[in-house]
Write a protein that binds this DNA or RNA. Structure first.
Lengths: 342, 342
DNA sequence: ACCTTAACTTTACGCGCGTAAATTTATAAT
DNA sequence: ATTATAAATTTACGCGCGTAAAGTTAAGGT
C-alpha cells in the first residue's frame, strides 16, 4: 500500500491502462484481455483502490445488488434459508442485501420500495403469501425480476422455488398411518406463516387418499409466537382430552415444539415406543427439532437446494440473453426425518 | 401520481422551490422554513419522487446508513438483538444494514470492508471478541464511529453496551447455591461465542465468593453447533457419571438445550422438585428456553435496553457536536428467570 | 419605519463514474 | 505478410446530486 488512490482516473494512470478499460474490468473482469487483466490485478495488489459504489451505480440501469426479502428473520427457518441464499449470491459475485419484514406484511412493501432505489439486478422474495400485497409485488416485478421462494403466489414473479408440500405432508401422513394410527392435524386458525394453508389442504387430501377422515383442530392466537400459542392451546386441548387421536401432526415444527412442551408438562409420554401414549410430528426440520424432548419427527425441506436453485434461476434471468420462457415452478421433495416423537 | 419525475431539478420546478433548498430538505426536513416544507410535502404527496440514493451519497462525506454487524444471524440470540437494533435505527430515520458474519471471524473483516464503501454514519458491531481482528476494527473506527455491543473488546470502539455478566452469573450461582447445591460449570473448551470466557471467569469468582470450589467441565467441539456438542458431550459425561454435582450451570442456553436433550434421553428427571435428580441452568434466555422440557432456568439479558442504548449512544456521537468524552461502557443487569429446570 | 438574521434563490462547479463513437493497436488466422 | 477481428484507447458527454458563494427575500423585533 503505497499511497491512497483517489479515483479510477488515478488508478488507471498507475496501472497503465485507460480509465474506460479499467471501468470495463470492474464491471466484468472477463471482458478484458488477459494481459490487461493481469496488469490491473497487479496494480490492485499494490495499491488500495475500490471503485466508489455510489458513483458506479448512479449511471447503471442495474447493479450487482441482489435483494433478498424474508418474512421474519427471527424465525430460524428463514434465518437459515436466508443465510444460504446470501452465501450463494456472494459466491456468484453479487452483493446480497438481506431484509426481514419482521413478521409484518406492510413492511414487505416497504422493503421492496427501499430495494427499488438500490436498483438491484433481481430480487429473491419469500413472500407472506396471501398476506402479501400481490399488486405491489407484481408491479415491482415489472421493473426488476423477482423470483419467489418458499411460498408461492399464483402468477406472481418470474419463477417459484420451494418444497412440494403435498408430497411432503403425504409422506408424513403415510408414515404415521402405516406405523400407528392416522393423525389429527393441529394448527392455528389464522396462521401467519405462508405455507400453513397448503399443509392443511395437503393433510386433508392425503388422509382421504388413505381412506381416513381428516380431523383438524384449529386454535386461535395472533402473531408469530407459534411456540407460545402451541403450548398454551396444546395444554388446554390436551388436558381437556380434546384430541380424538393420540397422534398429532402439527402445522409446523415451532408449533410442535410448543405442543411438546405442553405434553411434557402434563406428564404425557411422547414417542412411538410401546410405553408411549402420544405421538407428535411437525414439519420443516427446525434447527432445534433434533433437541426437543423427545427429538421431533418431522419433514426436512431441502434448504440448500431451494436456496441454490432460487439464486441460479434468478441469475439465469438476467445473465443470459435468452427470452425468459414461461413462469416455471420448481418443487423439491421433502424428506421424512424419523426421530423419537412419532 | 401524475407523471414520473426524473430528477430533483424537475421536482423542484414543480414544487416551486429551488433545487438546493429541496436538497436541503431531503437531508434534513427540519432545516427549511415551515412554509417551504409544506410546499415540498404537498408536492411529494402528488408526485412520486425519490431522490437517487446513489447520486445523493456520492458527494456526501457520510450517509444516513448505519451498519449493523453480528457474528451469526443463525443464532436466535443475534437475530433477536439484531432485529431490535434494526427497528431502533429505522425509528430514528436511518437506514440500517444488517450483516451477519456467518460464524466466521474473517467475514467480520469483510463485512466491515464492504460497509466502508457504503460510507455509513456509524456502525454497531457485536464482535466475536478475542477472535475479532482487533486492529481492523480499530482502524475502521478511526474513519467511522463504532459502538460495540454484546461483547466488549478492550479499548476498541467509541463505547460498549452489554450485559454485566459478572452480576448475572453471580445471580444464578447465588440462586443455585441458596436453593440447593453449588453448581458445576459446563462449557466448550474453545468456545466461539464471545462472552463464554466471561461466563467462566464470573462463575469462578462467584463460587469463591460463596466459599465454594469451582468445578468446570470443558468439552471439545468446533463450530457453532452448540446444541449438538452439548448433547453429544453431555450424553457422554452424564452416562459416565462424570459430573461431581447434580447441578449444572451451562455456559449458555444453546449448550443447555443440548444437555437437556441428553438428560432426557438418558431418563434423568431434570428440575428442582423433590423427585428430581438433576438441575440444569443456562444463560441468555434463548427464545426457545421457555419451551424446553422442562423449561429452562436462565438469565435474561435486556435485549431491548441493549439495542436502544447502543443506537442512542452511536447517534449521540454524530448528531451532537459535542466532543466525544472518553470511551464509556454501559452494562445492564441480567434478570434471573426461574423456570423448572433448576 | 428600520434593522438583524435566518432562510431562500441563483449561479456555478465538481464528484466519480458509465458509456457511446471514433480511432488505434494487438491478436490470430489465412 | 496480409487481413479480419477483437480489444484497447482517446475523446467527449452526461448522470443526479452536493455544496459553496453571492445576492435576495422574508420574518420578527424595536
Amino acid at each position: 500500500m503505497q499511497r491512497k488512490i483517489r479515483n479510477m482516473e488515478e488508478f488507471a494512470a498507475i496501472s497503465g491502462i485507460s480509465r474506460p478499460t479499467v471501468s470495463k474490468y470492474f464491471n466484468d473482469p472477463e471482458s478484458v484481455r488477459v494481459s490487461t487483466r493481469k496488469k490491473i490485478e497487479a496494480a490492485l495488489e499494490e495499491y488500495d483502490y475500490h471503485p466508489n459504489v455510489f458513483a458506479m451505480n448512479q449511471n447503471r440501469r442495474t447493479t450487482k445488488n441482489i435483494g433478498v426479502v424474508v418474512p421474519n428473520l427471527a424465525d430460524p427457518f428463514f434465518s437459515e434459508i436466508g443465510r444460504r441464499v446470501e452465501l450463494a449470491c456472494i459466491k456468484a459475485g453479487y452483493s446480497p442485501i438481506l431484509l426481514s419484514s419482521h413478521g409484518n406484511p406492510d413492511m414487505e412493501r416497504d422493503n421492496l420500495n427501499s430495494l427499488k432505489s438500490l436498483k438491484p439486478a433481481g430480487v429473491l422474495l419469500a413472500p407472506f403469501g396471501r398476506l402479501s400485497d400481490k399488486d405491489a409485488v407484481k408491479a415491482f416485478d415489472a421493473d426488476i425480476p423477482v423470483v419467489l421462494f418458499d411460498a408461492n403466489m399464483h402468477d406472481v414473479g418470474r419463477a417459484f422455488v420451494g418444497t412440494d408440500h403435498f408430497q411432503s405432508v403425504d409422506l408424513m401422513v403415510e408414515y404415521l398411518c402405516r406405523s400407528g394410527e392416522p393423525p389429527c392435524f393441529f394448527e392455528m386458525k389464522n396462521p401467519l406463516n405462508p405455507n400453513a394453508n397448503k399443509h392443511r389442504q395437503a393433510y386433508i387430501e392425503s388422509m382421504e387418499r388413505h381412506g381416513q377422515t381428516p380431523n383438524i383442530y384449529q386454535v386461535s392466537g395472533n402473531g408469530w409466537d407459534f411456540e407460545e400459542i402451541g403450548k398454551a392451546e396444546g395444554d388446554r386441548l390436551l388436558s381437556e382430552g380434546a384430541f380424538k387421536t393420540n397422534t398429532i401432526l402439527c402445522s409446523n415444527d415451532r408449533f410442535a415444539i410448543g405442543l411438546l412442551s405442553a405434553a411434557y408438562g402434563l406428564g404425557f409420554n411422547v414417542g412411538h415406543g410401546p410405553e408411549c401414549n402420544l405421538r407428535i410430528a411437525g414439519h420443516d426440520d427446525h434447527p432445534f427439532s433434533r433437541f426437543t424432548c423427545p427429538p421431533l419427527t418431522t419433514i426436512a425441506q431441502d434448504y440448500e437446494a431451494i436456496a441454490n436453485r432460487s439464486v441460479s434461476t434468478l441469475f439465469a434471468l438476467f445473465e443470459k440473453r435468452e427470452s425468459p420462457p414461461e413462469r416455471q415452478e420448481t418443487l423439491f421433495e421433502g424428506r421424512l426425518i424419523m426421530r423419537e416423537s412419532a
